[in-house]
């Protein structure tokens, strides 16, 4: 049997809100080490990789590895019924065709349970090598959200270039052009307000803004976002979810003809 209890149920709500428009369905792969998900969008341009550690939960038990096929819009409908302060418990019997979600209010005076029908999903996993990136940039997630939102109103694609001067986001469209440059800045006292650029070599890549903007739906999950760039490789946009784990978005670059 599988059982996972999380006191901060709001994290699960935010997580599903961040994913549900990008990927319609995917397998929650549960094992004794935690819960993982790898899912691509329908056009195979971007990929979501979620890893939640077993020790990040208040309680975690998984007797047998299982792939639970989730329809994210449906899971979202159920999670909307959970209060922001609720503790959420996920439960499933071995080889079950449903996932039970139990919501408990913080003062334990309201308990509800919902069963989500599980799907059988042929998952296509991609092997993503661990590797060194040419540039790794940590910045406030709200800053990333603002930049991609602003640029989406100007153009369709963004050229992201990392140099020793900083990281520059450039776009152009019918109304004109836009450039936003962030410099390495460790002046703010709070680490989550700093911009840290770790540059091994200059790199410049072009991406579709629509997806980068969609990744910013994960902003409520973390104060900091990390962007990793290497020539001719997908960008990684990564949000650490406290001690629980991380969600990473991969987006394939635009390629010159």
């Amino acid at each position: 049997m599988f059982e996972a209890r999380i006191t901060q149920g709001a994290v699960l709500k935010k997580l599903v809100e961040a994913l549900k428009e990008l990927v319609t369905e995917g397998n929650f792969d549960v094992s004794s080490t935690g819960l993982q998900l790898q899912a691509m969008d329908s056009s195979h341009v971007c990929l979501v990789s979620l890893a939640l550690r077993e020790d990040g939960f208040e309680h975690f038990r998984c007797d047998r590895n299982m792939a639970m096929g989730i329809h994210f819009q449906n899971l979202s409908k159920i999670l909307k019924c959970a209060g922001n302060e609720d503790t959420i418990t996920l439960k499933a019997e071995d080889n079950a065709d449903q996932l039970t979600l139990m919501f408990e209010s913080s003062n334990q005076d309201r308990i509800s349970d919902f069963d989500l029908k599980l799907m059988s999903i042929e998952s296509e996993h991609l092997g993503i090598p661990d590797q060194e990136y040419s540039a790794e940039i940590k910045m406030p997630s709200s800053e990333y959200q603002r930049i991609v939102r602003d640029l989406t109103s100007i153009g369709d694609t963004v050229l992201i270039s990392a140099t020793k001067e900083g990281i520059k986001f450039s776009t152009s469209g019918d109304v004109g052009t836009a450039n936003v440059t962030l410099r390495h800045n460790t002046t703010p006292e709070k680490p989550e307000e700093q911009t840290i650029i770790d540059l091994k070599e200059p790199v410049a890549l072009t991406f579709a803004l629509r997806y980068l903007n969609n990744f910013a739906k994960a902003t409520p999950l973390a104060p900091v976002v990390k962007l990793s760039l290497t020539k001719d490789l997908p960008i990684v946009v990564e949000y650490q979810i406290g001690e629980l784990g991380a969600v990473k978005f991969y987006l394939a670059p635009k390629i010159d003809d």
């Binding site: 694609t157 490789l233 003809d257």
Partner: peptide, 14 residues
């Protein structure tokens, strides 16, 4: 003009 790459061009299918 740049074309949108697909993930399979960068990562191997398992």
């Amino acid at each position: 003009k740049a074309n949108q790459g697909r993930l399979e061009s960068f990562f191997t299918a398992l």
